[in-house]
């Protein structure tokens, strides 16, 4: 009695899948994944809210005057300074942030959670507060600053170095958190395998760990760079707004808004282009979450 029933059941399987081969499947999937009432409309509002300002910028920009606006005095200076500062910030972040990410991901020690919370704090801290904090630490009368000033004659606030510091302060946590996540996802097993093959810690890091976390490192560096490039609050607080020395692009945009809207929009377009480039470079990492 049971045998024919089973055979029938087995037969109907392939027949079903044959029938649902083309459009039927898509319609079936759509009906299976229906959004709660109103979600699609609310989602559309969110998209509009996020996209319309960018559209406004692109549409209202004086494209015809763009070449002139971009070559206006001060614009190229700000652009060059922005690139120098933000790339320096990324370089410093990689140099010390990758080892920190490794320590957080691989070593077990008391207070690891506290260290992680503290180093990620700049991500959520208002940048202006970061700038004030930097002043209190590295300013001429700051905790370390007075000592640097008197002992070595090094002054950081209101210098290009200060701008780099401000950008590093806000950007490095993005690199740390991304690389640490990459290291955790990778796990220690490949490193174990390398050790059994006679590779010391440095060889293992260089030949196994680093190549395997390269996507995370790239993503972290790109995020940090984007954040450093857009840095405003901490920079203007700690480094000021000195053209050619600390006036990076965001600062120049803000200043230009007062008297020269065209320059402001031209600079904004440049930064939008850079941001889009970063986004495209990161698409594998962020657009297809595993």
């Amino acid at each position: 009695m049971t045998m024919p029933t089973k055979a029938g059941g087995a037969d109907s399987g392939p027949a079903l899948s044959l029938r649902s081969g083309g459009r039927a499947t898509r319609a079936y999937r759509r009906s299976a994944r229906r959004a709660p009432a109103g979600f699609v409309a609310l989602a559309a509002i969110a998209v509009a809210f996020l996209v319309l300002p960018v559209v406004g910028l692109v549409v209202r920009s004086p494209w015809r005057d763009l070449p002139a606006d971009l070559t206006a005095p001060g614009v190229l200076t700000a652009l060059r300074l922005s690139l120098v500062c933000s790339l320096s910030a990324v370089a410093i972040s990689v140099a010390v942030g990758v080892p920190l990410a490794w320590v957080l991901a691989r070593l077990r020690f008391r207070g690891r959670g506290l260290v992680r919370a503290l180093v990620l704090l700049p991500m959520v801290l208002p940048p202006v507060v970061g700038g004030v904090a930097l002043l209190l630490a590295f300013g001429r009368n700051g905790l370390i600053g007075q000592w640097l000033d008197r002992g070595f004659g090094i002054t950081l606030p209101f210098t290009t170095g200060g701008a780099v510091m401000a950008e590093t302060f806000v950007a490095m946590p993005f690199l740390i958190i991304t690389v640490e996540a990459g290291l955790r996802a990778l796990g220690q097993r490949y490193e174990d395998a390398a050790a059994t093959l006679g590779a010391g810690r440095w060889t293992t890091f260089r030949r196994v760990t680093l190549p395997l976390i390269a996507p995370s490192l790239g993503a972290g560096a790109a995020l940090a760079w984007a954040r450093a490039l857009g840095e405003f609050g901490a920079t203007i607080t700690f480094a000021g707004n000195l053209p050619g020395r600390t006036q990076t692009m965001p600062l120049a945009v803000y200043l230009a808004l007062e008297n020269n809207l065209g320059t402001a929009m031209a600079l904004s377009l440049v930064m939008l282009a850079i941001s889009l480039t970063v986004l495209v470079a990161l698409r594998g990492h962020w657009f297809h979450p595993r």
Binding site: R189, A193, A194, A195, T196, L197, G198, A199, G200, T204
Partner: peptide, 12 residues
């Protein structure tokens, strides 16, 4: 003796 200094071969 650290793993990398041991004369071993491992197939995981």
């Amino acid at each position: 003796v650290a793993t990398e200094k041991r004369s071993i071969g491992v197939v995981f």
